[in-house]
Computed example of a mutant assay.
Amino acid sequence: MDYYAIVHNDFDGTASASVYARAVSSLPKNVWFTEPTKLHEVLSKLELRGVNTIMIGDLGLNESTFSSIIEALKRLRDEGATVQWFDHHVWKDEWKSKLKELGVEVYHDVTTCGAGVVNKVMNPNDEVSKKLASADCSVDIWLHDDPLGEKLRRIVENDRSFEWKRKLIEVFYNGTLWNEEFQKILEKRINEELDGYRKIWKYVKVLEVEGVKIVVAIRWKGPPDISYASQFLMTRTGADIFVSANGKAISFRSNVIDIRRFAVSLGGGGHPLAAGASLRIPLAYRILRKFGIRGPVIDWVSKVVVDVIKKEGIVRYERKNIH
């Protein structure tokens, strides 16, 4: 079966493409890794060239690009394409309705991760796919209930190149979820992370808003990434919320608070326990940051965080049985 895959540029996107490939017993003729904000660009440039099936996985929708996506999909449908879209982010009902009117097959389920949606729909009885989806969901939607997820996420993110992710899709497609190469990468990453944890404190500030402790950080170079750093810092400080800003975007993490509300308030979105939004730090603060002066930028980000939390309020998140 010839098809194109368009997936999110992360572990969940890679896992979604792998589970789909196992379901249709074929690797994609080509795969694009992208972000939700750039999906419309990929679709508008896509040429079928004899391939009539398009799989979209782990990519949500944004109001600002929705009309462009509809226009691009209408063209592809008119050219004879079958489009299957698997996602788990929060959608508006009208988005699903408009896509279905175009003939797009929409599989939307917010109770699992992207790979979990594909697994449920396409091959629920495949043991390899179930294990991969379980590992993926564990880290993608912050369940932290499958140790393989913490290991595989480090493997996927060890190399940011698309070539590496394409290689992993083939490895997972062939039924391998762990091997000697992965073990060596894991050991190297863990050592790098341990070194990074010792340096991370100079990028951090601890706040308290409405009785809830919050860790605010500006991005540092190298490991650990924000997901692992967030767990480390929240545990060490007793905080319930972790916030990280890298100059262009802000990320929220928590184990017990619905932080998606804060991301949405800033124009973004995500999951109840892991979400983010665009946030452009003023140039003056970014210049100071380059010279090693971190205080002003940390204070600026902290003010944004305090303001949005006071505006939206603290809402505890009730975990449900998912997957």
Rank of each mutant, 00 (worst) to 15 (best):
N158A: 12
I281N: 01
P282L: 10
A245Y: 02
A5V: 05
D93Q: 13
P224I: 06
R219Y: 06
E150D: 08
K96Y: 12
K29V: 09
L48V: 07
V256S: 12
D258R: 04
I200M: 03
G57S: 02
L59C: 02
F33E: 06
E187A: 15
K202I: 15
N125T: 08
V243C: 03
S134P: 08
V128S: 08
P28W: 01
D140R: 05
N191R: 11
T65W: 07
A23F: 09
I298Q: 04
Q231P: 05
D140F: 04
I169N: 03
L102S: 03
I185V: 07
W164G: 04
G196I: 07
A115V: 04
F11A: 02
W164F: 09
K199V: 13
W178H: 11
Y3Q: 06
V139T: 08
K165N: 08
G313I: 11
G50V: 12
A274N: 03
D87S: 06
S44D: 12
N125C: 11
E180A: 15
I314A: 06
H88L: 07
G211L: 15
F252W: 07
S251F: 03
W164N: 12
T37C: 14
L233Q: 01
G80E: 04
G222R: 04
W300M: 04
A229D: 02
D78F: 15
R75A: 11
F232D: 02
R286Q: 08
A245P: 00
E170Q: 15
Y3P: 05
S68D: 10
